[in-house]
Simulated assay, not measured.
Amino acid sequence: MKLARDIKEFETRLGHSFADPGLLIRALTHASISSPTRGDNQRLEFLGDRVLGLVMAEAVLDHDPEASEGQLAPRFNALVRKEACAEIAREIDIGAVLKIGRSEMMTGGRRKTALLGDAMEAVIAAVYLDGGFSAARDLILRLWGKRIKTVDTDARDAKTALQEWAQARKLPPPGYNELKREGPDHAPVFTIEARLATGEAARAAANSKRAAEQAAAKALLDKVET
C-alpha cells in the first residue's frame, strides 16, 4: 500500500502517469536488489542515456541557432553528464523511491551521484517506452528547462579545460592527488589537490573523488586565469 502511494506521489513529481507502472518500478530498481524474477534498471539506463542525448542535442541547437559546434558540444556535455542527471533526480526526489539492496542502503546509496544519475536515465527510458518519444521529450525539456536556458555559454568540464590550458602552454597534464578521506563509509569526504608542473596548485573537497577533482581543477583554473 505504501509503495503504491509513494509511486503515485513520484508520478506527480515526475509529471507523467504510467499506463504500465511496471516500467517505472523497473526503472527504480537498482542491480543490488535484482533477482531472476525482478529485473533491474541497467538496460533502461542504456536506453535513457540515448533518448536524453537526442533531446538535448536538439534543444541546444534550437536554443542558439548561431552557435558553432565548438560552442554547442560543451553545453551539451554539461547538460547530459551524470552529475546533471543526479541533480535533476534530487530535485524530484528519486532517492525516496529508489529500490536498492541492503549493502547500498548502508553506504548511502540513495544519495550517490552515480545511482541517482543512472536512475534518472532509466526513468527517462521508462517514460519513452510508456508514452513514446514525445512524452519523453516533454519530460526532459520540462525538468531540464532552466538549465538549457542558463547553461554557461563557455561550459566546459573543468579537468578538460585545465588540461587544455596546460597543453596550450606546452605543459604536461595536471596531476591529482588524494590528500585525505574523512567521514563514515556511507558519506565520505575526499580532499583532492590539483597541481601543475609549474607548481601552481589548488585543493577542493567533495563527497566523491570525481567531484573533488573537478572542483580542484576549477579552483586551479580560476587561479591561473586571473
Rank of each mutant, 00 (worst) to 15 (best):
V51G: 01
L54T: 01
L54Y: 12
V55E: 01
V55I: 02
M56N: 02
A57P: 07
L61S: 10
H63L: 07
D64S: 06
D64W: 04
A67P: 13
A67N: 03
A67H: 03
E69G: 09
E69Q: 06
G70T: 12
G70F: 06
L72H: 06
A73R: 14
R75P: 08
N77I: 09
N77F: 14
A78C: 10
L79Q: 01
L79V: 01
V80E: 02
V80N: 03
R81D: 07
K82V: 14
K82A: 12
E87N: 07
I88Q: 01
I88V: 15
R90E: 04
I92N: 06
I92C: 05
D93F: 03
I94V: 13
A96V: 11
A96F: 10
K99I: 11
I100R: 07
I100N: 08
G101H: 13
G101P: 14
G101A: 12
G101Q: 09
R102F: 13
S103K: 13
E104M: 09
M105L: 10
M106R: 12
G108P: 15
G109E: 06
K112W: 14
T113I: 00
L116D: 03
D118V: 04
E121W: 07
A122V: 13
I124Y: 08
A125D: 15
Y128F: 15
Y128K: 12
L129K: 14
D130S: 10
G132H: 05
G132A: 08
G132R: 04
F133C: 03
S134R: 10
S134N: 10
D138W: 08
L139D: 12
I140Y: 02
L141P: 00
R142S: 08
R142T: 03
L143C: 07
W144Q: 02
G145D: 05
K146L: 03
R147K: 01
I148G: 00
K149W: 06
K149I: 02
T150M: 12
V151G: 00
V151Q: 00
T153D: 12
T153Y: 03
